[in-house]
Design a binder for these strands. Structure first.
Lengths: 341, 341
DNA sequence: CTGAAAGCGCTTACAG
DNA sequence: CTGAAAGCGCTTACAG
């Protein structure tokens, strides 16, 4: 007497043959359709588990003309040739990945910088995904607007910009820039520099908050202290060196990212300037490392975990044909030691 | 007289109808098959471009039973409940993403921690990809071995381990641990601590290098200075506090990651201990931020850019049925200021 | 509630 | 070099 090997079940039909039903019924059962007898459904689902069968995803996607993939595009600053080594990106990516996974969607990662919509609309990134999440707008607000017009579900993390047609999720940038600057003013700082690329909507809003705080304190902003640079470490370091070389008077710096702030502190220390005694430094984002810098960084927290969830919920809603509102998440001042106080 | 709208071409058949050939010929032409007349091919390719048509990827993948996707799995330390906020991961991810993109493969990101092979082998991550790159082995060497037995193309970034059956790409960890420790000894340090989870193959090898350097200098390692902790910032900070609280004599720390080193420096500074005057700190990885910490970090460089390329070339070769050798990349001591000298 | 049938867009062995 | 034909594994409108 020979043992027959267990049948290999690699399609709906195989399972249907075993169960003695049609593959249509198996399809319905496994997709939890209401149009199957509850018993049949339970039996079929158990059978699928027993034979370790799951629906062939490519076939299903092909049939349904969907991909069940969401692309994530990081908008790199075109003026900075650095790779995105900012941990803010990784934390955001992790939070998006978690959100997508919980809805059984895959995450397709786009790494190349984006310049032209037409290229983008035709790219694998957009064509092979049901929707796209952009992290940051860079200076490509208009490109994003045009992409919406192609009808693809897209959601953007960033700051508000005029004539926006895409769904936006972002922090309260004007508020963040304001509270960072106010905090510094409360510590008695008067010569406060601003580091960041103010052409991006996020940083533009942060800068307006900075200006508002200054005005409110009856100070006017000094162009020499406004340093328009990409938000990376290299530029922050160079900016500190330039300011110091030129002998420009300054007692604080507002940075548009934590990595800039960390690099600024390092550059200051290297030149014998004490933080926070001589110059206070405040960051933005509250990446994990902010607690572990020397000194620990005072910064504006963007709720990164929450952000990922909202971004995912928003694209998914769009994909499912729903109307979606833009969202602004609260920003919070986190006081550590880099500003004294 | 009315203008007829340009025909929408959304399949091979549509293009074939326009060209007056069969869809088989169009398929061959667009896939650059040698079995088509060169002129026909050129004409058809031009036509495809004109009508902005590209082959439906899902249909093709379904037909060919391939996905043209490579998954990337970060092996998180199961003893650390932190998200992977280590920039090393992001830099590695970027480098892998670049490599994959240049071969027209998509990157599927896996974020959930991995425990059981059976779960893993059945997971979307493995089933919906042509191959998988694991970054780090964690303590799951055996799990990885079992996964190879399922016949899937997998490549692992990590350290060498006994009875390995998977293809490995990694740095020279023993050499790295050795040169880090030797460098410290040359600076006159004698009480050198080691921070890291030595149960992972990578860190185990680094630790053996540490021990070898010590032995060679006629010092023996002191168990009180060997701190077995996950390679994250929180644990590094706590370890410094513990050592100092217990009054354990120490003049240097070898860390198994740059983020640990940065956190250690911060903890030391908070407690009034000067780096490098009182305690020297050396990191591992040479993430971008290593140049910008305070003080700038002396560390062991792992060629992250090169690593991504090798990992990608290796999985792709495996996917194409080739034999693949494991690779060891050289490690390099990068001297900055955190160890004096 | 269930099944037979059509069809999604592609590739390729086969025949010419 | 080219085409007709089969078939990948699935879903769903239609009929019962």
């Amino acid at each position: 007497m020979t043992n027959r090997p267990p049948p290999v079940v690699s399609s709906l039909q195989d399972l249907a043959d075993i169960a003695g039903v049609s593959r249509a019924t198996v399809s319905r059962a496994l997709n939890d359709s209401p149009f199957v007898n509850a018993n049949t459904k339970t039996k079929l689902q158990a059978l699928a588990r027993k034979y370790n069968y799951t629906i062939n995803r490519r076939a299903r996607e092909f049939r349904l003309r969907q991909t069940r993939v969401v692309s994530v595009v990081f908008m790199l600053d075109l003026h900075s040739d650095q790779h995105p080594s900012d941990p803010f990106f990784l934390e955001m990516l992790g939070s998006i990945a978690d959100g997508l996974a919980s809805h059984d969607y895959d995450l397709l990662l786009a790494h190349a910088p984006v310049t032209d919509v037409r290229d983008l609309a035709d790219s694998r990134i957009v064509r092979h995904a049901d929707g796209v999440i952009f992290v940051g707008q860079g200076e490509q607000h208009e490109t994003l607007n045009q992409l919406v017009d192609t009808g693809r579900p897209i959601v953007v993390w960033g700051g508000s910009a005029a004539n926006r047609r895409y769904v936006l999720v972002g922090g309260d940038n004007a508020g963040g820039g304001y509270s960072a600057t106010s905090h510094l003013l409360k510590q008695g700082r008067q010569r406060i520099a601003f580091f960041g690329n103010t052409r991006t909507p996020e940083n533009g809003a942060r800068f307006s908050g900075y200006q508002r705080a200054l005005t409110q304190a009856n100070l006017k902003s000094d162009q020499k202290l406004v340093v328009n640079i990409p938000s990376d470490m290299q530029h922050a370091q160079t900016a500190i060196e330039n300011l110091l070389n030129k002998g420009i008077d300054m007692d604080a710096v507002v940075c548009t990212s934590d990595v800039m702030a960390i690099a600024a502190i390092s550059a200051l220390a290297e030149l014998g300037v004490s933080v926070p005694d001589d110059v206070a430094v405040i960051g933005y984002d509250d990446i994990r490392m902010a607690s572990y810098s020397s000194p620990p960084l005072t910064t504006i927290r963007q709720g990164i975990q929450r952000a990922g969830g909202v971004l995912v919920d928003s694209v998914l809603a769009l994909i499912n044909g729903h109307q979606v509102e833009s969202t602004t998440l609260a920003s919070e001042l986190v006081i550590r030691r880099s500003c004294g106080g």
